[in-house]
């Protein structure tokens, strides 16, 4: 979904279309969540940053001048809430600890109910990929976490979410993916 269709959804929501709002939330929730996680917030704090961001967007339905840039607005707002939470003394989750170790619950029905062996192997592959990702340095984890929450090849959201120059994102992404590849292929047996 491109920024044009996101803009259309937003405008429909501004006119009172609840289904359009729901579609917007479903489409852009991974982005807002990824910004909160990229800032190292705990589950509870990430939930709060996520909620405040969406609640605030609901208040701004008739105020945003450029509907096509809603995703950047969300990324910036989420970033600011995260920074404020960090400044007020919220504990950050260390980059190599839990969170990703939780046993999948009703939030990941696919991983719980996979019967098919092929699908199980696929899920295991993704689990290992995620584990390698969590071994990356902080900056790379931050960047990749936001990028995978955004549409492919869209760097505006990551720039807004992390306060980076948009021109630096491409080279950083390349470097970080290269490091991830090294961890996947060169890493020892787990």
């Amino acid at each position: 979904m491109d920024s044009e269709s996101i803009g259309r959804l937003f405008q429909a929501a501004a006119k009172g279309d609840a289904a359009a709002w729901k579609a917007l939330v479903e489409r852009l929730s991974p982005l807002v969540w990824s910004v909160a996680r990229a800032h190292g917030l705990s589950d509870a704090d990430a939930c709060e940053a996520y909620q405040t961001t969406w609640f605030r967007l609901a208040q701004h339905l008739d105020r945003i001048r450029d509907p096509e840039r809603v995703s950047t607005w969300l990324a910036t707002t989420a970033r600011n809430e995260c920074l404020k939470l960090i400044r007020s003394g919220r504990k950050l989750v260390a980059s190599d600890t839990e969170s990703f170790e939780r046993i999948p619950d009703d939030r990941t029905p696919e991983s719980v109910f996979i019967e098919d062996e092929e699908a199980r192997d696929e899920a295991e592959r993704h689990r290992q990929l995620w584990q390698a990702f969590r071994e990356l340095g902080d900056k790379c984890q931050q960047l990749l976490r936001v990028l995978i929450g955004s549409p492919p090849h869209s760097y505006q959201e990551a720039a807004a979410a992390l306060g980076l120059a948009i021109g630096s994102i491409g080279p950083m992404r390349q470097r970080c993916l290269r490091q991830l590849r090294l961890l996947l292929t060169g890493g020892g047996n787990s």
Partner: peptide
């Protein structure tokens, strides 16, 4: 490809909690 794989991994390993997404929907 690696980025998309990672995107898929995030969906499995660290998705937006369903109840949380619902609260954003209801924020309308």
């Amino acid at each position: 490809m690696l980025e998309n794989d990672l995107r898929r991994a995030a969906d499995l390993m660290d998705p937006v909690p369903a109840a949380l997404l619902q609260s954003a929907v209801e924020a309308f």
